[in-house]
Structure formats: structure tokens, C-alpha cells
């Protein structure tokens, strides 16, 4: 992508915002991650926090910065990127139970979309999603790649409490609530495995750029996975795949 399409602007005293065109695409996401990884190797950016999502990358420094100098460095690094370089990302398979006791909005969603509940579940569980970023809550994944047939604006009245593990959809995205929280998304099911854990050295193993698939499990299997997880026997399934 040419540099004219890259917008670099100061964001307050301590941050720089790099913005790409206003579209959701895997190629932009890959470019963001490649640039982020390249910047992380550079001394000037070592201490910067980097928040990437959809079409932007925000660099936050611990002190005031020389914007013009940093802008030049970012452009240099960007020009030097090899976009065709294949690189690896993880493909995660997460169990989701679409039982009505978890999927409290299944009926309403099916009705709004003029689909059957089974069709909603099928379409949601048979897609490969991409992690475009994390935010809203610690460990909340923004997953793109939702079937066009499931696009639906968020609920008019947000719920005061959405339970931990809820798998939900809104607009063109799906996501998993990592903690109990208020929320306005439509809840379709529940994932028995907490993905975000502050006691682990890597509290959130699923990273921007990774892919996620959902494996539909019935209530019995959901409970058994949960039990195995509690005893420490369950490990999330993932494999390395090449991102071309």
C-alpha cells in the first residue's frame, strides 16, 4: 500500500495515531501487524504501547515526543516493509454451547433475520473469524468475518449484565464477553473456557491477526469441558497457520 494512504497524526502529547483507509480488510490488518512488529524492534519505540485495531495503530509513549522525527521514522519503517512476506498466526478452535439457556437472544435474532434458530447457529458456527483487535473490556475480542446473513444492529436497550463467556453478535462482528459486564450485543451462546486470565504470564493468548472458529458443543460436552478446565486438563486448541 502506498504511503499516501497512510495518515500519521499526533494524538495528544504522548501518542501518535496511524490510520489506514476506512475499510475492514485482512490485508490492512496484516500491514498493521507487520508495521507494529517492525516498530517493536526499534529502540525509539521499545517503550511505546501499541494498540492496533481494524484500520489504525496507536503508539502511546510514556512521555512527550518529537512528533516530526517519529513520523519520519514510521514512514521509513513502513516503506521497508515486505508485505508479501508470509508469516504465521494462530487458528483457535473455541467450544461454544448454543443451548437456549445461554443463547438468550437466539429466538429474537432468528425472528429479526427471518431465519430459524438452527440456521442462525449454523451460520455462526460455520465461519472463520479474524481478530481485528481487543478492547471494550480486558480480553474482549473484536472478531470480523460474520456471515452477512447475521448482520444486525446492536440491541436498543443494553443489558445491565451479560454473563462471562457469552458469545454475541452486533453489526458485522462477533465477540466473547471475558467478564460479567453490561452489554448491548445479541447473545447466541457461551464459551466454557475463560480466555483472559491475569494470573497467567500471557493473560490473553489470542492476539490481533489470529483466527477463531467455533465448535458447537451440547450442554453435556459444555459441562464436561468446563470440569476438565477446572481440573487443569483442558487446553485450548490452536494450530499455526501461514498468513499469505
Amino acid at each position: 500500500m502506498s504511503d499516501q494512504l497512510l495518515k500519521i497524526s499526533p494524538y495528544g502529547e504522548r501518542a501518535i495515531l496511524i490510520t489506514w483507509p476506512d475499510t475492514v480488510s485482512e490485508s490492512i490488518l496484516k500491514e498493521i501487524i507487520l508495521l507494529k512488529n517492525a516498530l517493536k524492534q526499534e529502540e525509539e519505540f521499545l517503550n511505546a504501547e501499541m494498540i492496533g485495531s481494524y484500520n489504525s495503530l496507536c503508539l502511546v509513549f510514556s512521555d512527550t515526543l518529537d512528533f516530526e522525527n517519529m513520523r519520519q521514522r514510521i514512514l521509513e519503517m513502513h516503506v521497508a516493509l515486505d508485505f508479501n512476506q508470509p508469516f504465521e498466526r494462530k487458528l483457535w478452535s473455541l467450544p461454544v454451547c448454543y443451548d437456549a439457556r445461554f443463547g438468550v437472544d437466539l429466538e429474537a435474532v432468528a425472528k429479526s433475520l427471518r431465519l430459524s434458530v438452527d440456521q442462525v447457529i449454523y451460520k455462526h458456527a460455520h465461519a472463520k473469524y479474524t481478530v481485528y483487535g481487543l478492547g471494550f473490556l480486558p480480553g474482549f475480542l473484536y472478531l470480523g468475518g460474520l456471515s452477512r446473513n447475521l448482520w444486525l444492529p446492536r440491541r436498543e436497550q443494553p443489558r445491565l449484565k451479560v454473563v462471562e463467556g457469552s458469545v454475541a453478535i452486533a453489526d458485522r462482528q462477533t465477540g466473547i464477553y471475558p467478564q460479567d459486564s453490561p452489554g448491548g450485543w445479541h447473545i447466541l451462546g457461551n464459551c466454557p473456557i475463560p480466555l483472559f486470565n491475569v494470573r497467567k504470564r500471557d493473560p490473553m493468548p489470542i492476539k490481533p491477526g489470529d483466527q477463531v472458529t467455533f465448535e458447537a458443543v451440547d450442554l453435556e460436552l459444555y459441562r464436561s469441558i468446563y470440569k476438565r478446565y477446572r481440573k487443569g486438563y483442558y487446553k485450548l486448541k490452536s494450530e499455526l497457520v501461514c498468513w499469505k
Binding site: 494524538y11 501518542a15 485495531s53 481494524y54 502511546v60 483487535g133
Partner: peptide, 11 residues
């Protein structure tokens, strides 16, 4: 509305 993007304290 915009695509979800970083916000900071003070935004």
C-alpha cells in the same frame, strides 16, 4: 461512527 480504534485517558 468509526471503526473501533484506540482511545486514551483524556479523549
Amino acid at each position: 461512527s468509526l471503526l473501533t480504534s484506540a482511545v486514551l485517558p483524556g479523549t
